[in-house]
Design a protein around this nucleic acid. Structure first.
Length: 492
RNA sequence: CGGGGUGUAGCGUAGCCCGGUAUCGCGCUUGGUUUGGGACCAAGAGGUCGUCAGUUCGAAUCUGGCCACCCCGACCA
């Protein structure tokens, strides 16, 4: 592991890349645009999965798995959806290789093994899932269907960045089918709330819930809801989406049911997802120039114990105490590691665990044994305090709660400072180019204005906040009347 | 797909203009001294210089083709 990462002030993008690599989260693979998620990075993703999966199940959903490949004819059935993803689809056209007669030891695509129908590698699974739902739904008694899947998807992006945008990424996608419009909308909103809850309470990431403008809507959706977060460089990041699909996929795949009155009706749908992009959000929202800062509720390791010793005898004495602490803390439900390696000095270990964002570090040396104390360092503020042995059991769990809260409060204060209400276009541009962040401004509601602003400033409407109070005003761009402010920002 | 750039040890690099089998740092191995904030000293190991061809007595270096990757744009969870 190297010694330093680029500072945020020097080059925010480079800081992010350095951090992902030095904290051992992920690296570029031999496949263009695809990453290897390393064990430590994956363990954080697993924590996210566990928390989300429980929330999905608590709201009545079940997991299932649908195929990676989507026959082209199914994929193209919902026109807007197909059109929206067409430019970034990987396609399977053949199913066999053979020895290349012109080059010894090389393989070539067997031209005789061409598929009758090409298979699209899923960029999202609405098509394959709704073609399946058609077989499952005949009666109102078959509804609702509340299914989630954990899967990988492929979107052939031109430019990629670790976690934030990769050609293949991991995610979960919920796909639900309902008898009524109202129920489907309730589902869409419920899952948005689940995502916001997860972001705020697990990721310690304050988010703004809202609806996308027509231009930013998911292809094939009637309405797209999202949560938007602010990163430390003042750019916005979409952290999750929940779509009300109306009857678009029911239309495309002829999914109908017989209602209580014996009449045929079309099914209403939703879909919702979050991806490994959340890893990027987690990193960019909280971490500092010394490395990762992970909120305790997502940290694979809560506490690391580092012994400080000069010889085997000292290590043995410290180990006895450390083992006791490990037991105590594990009994509190915490993940604890005693790093007794004698191949690295304490200073090296301190730096290493800071880079990896372990929330709490406990150091024990001979001095502590004599005093009946330990040195406790918290990662979020870098504060160090001496604690007596008997306090560890109660004070460490309390400290972790405090760290979780501190990280959230810090992110919220940051966002509050970087959220600006503007009333003129000049001010709009000044704020974007100066302090950045979220800009709340009036918008006339037209796609033309939205596009013009994007063209001129690179800022997009992140969302129309759900909690925006009605307020009479005029569009900063066109001067036409508007009745609420929308959220603008430059985004990832 | 347009514009620019770069490929030398696991990683980061010097050398290239002006041809003579490769520099330095990190990391790695071994031994010793160290250990309360990324240790030090010594000795070692590790390279078809992206690839293919050409020029030459001789190519990391010059010429051409190819490949890969990075950056800027357009596109994007």
């Amino acid at each position: 592991m190297g010694k330093e990462i680029t500072s945020r002030a020097a080059d925010y993008s480079q800081w992010y890349i350095d951090l992902v690599k030095k904290a051992d989260l992920a690296e570029n693979s031999d496949v263009r645009g695809c990453m290897v998620i390393k064990p430590y990075g994956y363990s954080i993703w697993e924590k996210m999965q566990q928390a989300l999966d429980k929330m999905f199940k608590d709201t009545g959903h079940v997991n299932a798995y649908f195929p990676l490949f989507v026959p082209k004819s199914l994929f193209e059935a919902e026109e807007k959806n197909a059109e929206g993803f067409a430019k970034e689809c990987a396609i399977v056209t053949h199913y066999r290789l053979k020895n290349d007669p012109s080059q010894k030891g090389k393989l070539m695509v067997d031209p005789e093994a061409k598929l009758e129908e090409e298979l699209v590698v899923r960029p999202t699974s609405e098509a394959i899932i709704w073609s399946t739902y058609k077989k499952w739904i005949q009666s109102y008694r078959d509804l609702p269907i509340l299914i989630n899947q954990w899967a990988n998807v492929v979107r052939w992006e031109m430019r990629t960045r670790l976690f934030l945008r990769t050609a293949e990424f991991l995610w979960q996608e919920g796909h639900t089918a309902h008898a009524t419009r109202e129920e489907a909308i309730r589902e869409t909103e419920q899952m948005l709330d689940v995502y916001a809850d997860f972001a705020e309470n697990f990721m310690a990431l304050p988010v703004i819930k809202g609806r996308k403008s027509e231009g930013e809507r998911f292809p094939g959706a009637v309405d797209t809801y999202c949560i938007e977060a602010l990163m430390q460089d003042g750019k916005a990041l979409q952290a999750g989406t929940s779509h009300f699909l109306g009857q678009n996929f029911a239309d495309a795949f002829h999914v109908q049911f017989t209602n209580k009155e014996g009449k045929l009706e079309k099914v209403w749908g939703t879909s919702w997802g979050v991806s490994t992009r959340l890893m990027g959000a987690l990193i960019m929202a909280h971490s500092d120039d010394d490395g990762l800062i992970i909120p305790p509720r997502l940290a694979p390791l809560h506490v690391v114990i580092v012994p400080i010793f000069k010889n085997e005898d000292e290590l043995a004495r410290i180990s006895a105490k450390a083992d006791e602490l490990v037991k105590t803390l594990r009994a509190q439900g915490l993940s604890v590691k005693f790093d007794n390696r004698d191949t690295h000095k304490p200073g090296f270990k301190f730096a290493e665990y800071e880079m990896r964002g372990v929330p709490v570090r406990i150091a024990i040396g001979p001095r502590d044994l004599d005093n009946g104390t330990v040195e406790v360092a918290r990662r979020d503020t870098k504060e160090k305090n001496v604690m007596t042995f008997d306090r560890v059991k109660t004070d460490i769990p309390a400290l972790l709660d405090d760290i979780q809260k501190t990280i959230y409060d810090r992110a919220l204060a940051f966002r509050t400072n970087l959220t600006t209400r503007v009333d003129t276009y000049a001010e709009f541009k000044t704020v974007l180019d100066g302090k950045g962040g979220f800009v709340l401004a009036h918008w006339d509601g037209t796609a033309q204005t939205e596009a013009a602003i994007k063209e001129e400033t690179k800022a997009t409407i992140r969302c129309i906040p759900l909690d925006a109070p009605p307020e009479e005003g005029v569009c900063v761009y066109s001067g036409k009347p508007s009745n609420k402010r929308v959220l603008f920002a430059r985004a990832y």
